[in-house]
Simulated scan of single mutants.
Amino acid sequence: MLAIIAAVAFFIAFLINAAEISTNDAFTSTNIMLLGLTLLALHVAGVGSGWSARGRRR
């Protein structure tokens, strides 16, 4: 799920950069890209995967 949100954030950053849309300082394409990278790193680290080590024990 986090990877899908990261992909959407990368797409929004690309659109802002490609269309040269003027935005405020907090909503720049670089900040959106860094948010996407953070979400992608969390996905790779296994955060939000839904699997629990305690739930798998029998």
Rank of each mutant, 00 (worst) to 15 (best):
I12Q: 01
R57G: 10
A45H: 00
F11Q: 05
A45V: 08
G48T: 03
L40M: 13
S49D: 01
A53T: 15
R56E: 15
H43K: 02
A3R: 03
W51T: 11
W51G: 15
R57D: 14
N31T: 11
A45W: 04
F27Q: 10
L39T: 07
F10E: 06
N17W: 04
L37S: 07
A26M: 07
I4Y: 12
A26F: 15
G50N: 01
L34R: 08
L39G: 02
G36M: 07
R58A: 14
L35N: 05
F10A: 09
A3Y: 00
A41T: 03
V8T: 11
V47C: 02
L34S: 09
S29L: 05
F11P: 05
N24Q: 00
V44R: 03
G48N: 02
S52I: 05
A26S: 13
G50D: 06
I21Y: 07
L2S: 00
A53I: 15
M1F: 00
R54D: 14
L15A: 10
A19D: 08
L2Y: 08
N17K: 06
V8A: 06
R58I: 14
T28H: 13
A6K: 01
V44F: 08
A41Y: 05
N31Y: 01
L39S: 03
L15D: 10
I5L: 15
V47S: 00
A45L: 09
V47W: 06
R58K: 14
M33D: 09
R57L: 11
I12G: 02
L42N: 04
T30L: 13
A19H: 10
V47F: 05
S49H: 00
A3K: 00
S22Q: 07
L15I: 12
I4G: 15
F10L: 10
I16M: 08
I32R: 13
L34Q: 08
L34E: 03
A13F: 08
L2C: 00
V44N: 05
G50E: 00
L2I: 05
E20A: 14
F27D: 14
A13V: 11
F14I: 09
L37E: 00
N31R: 06
G48Q: 02
N31E: 06
S22G: 02
I12C: 04
A19S: 11
H43G: 04
I32Y: 14
E20G: 14
G55C: 06
L40T: 13
L39H: 01
T23M: 06
A13Y: 07
L40S: 08
T23S: 08
A13L: 12
G50V: 02
A53Y: 15
F27C: 09
S52D: 14
G50Y: 02
I16T: 13
S29R: 07
T38G: 12
D25Y: 06
A19G: 09
R58F: 09
T28C: 08
L35M: 04
A6E: 12
L42A: 10
L2D: 01
S49P: 02
N24L: 08
M33F: 12
I4D: 13
A9I: 02
A41M: 12
A6T: 02
R58Y: 13
L39W: 11
R57E: 15
G36I: 02
A53M: 15
N24R: 02
S22A: 06
I21E: 02
T38Q: 04
A9N: 05
S22D: 06
A6R: 04
W51E: 14
D25V: 04
E20V: 11
A18I: 09
N24D: 09
A3M: 08
G46H: 11
G36K: 05
S29I: 11
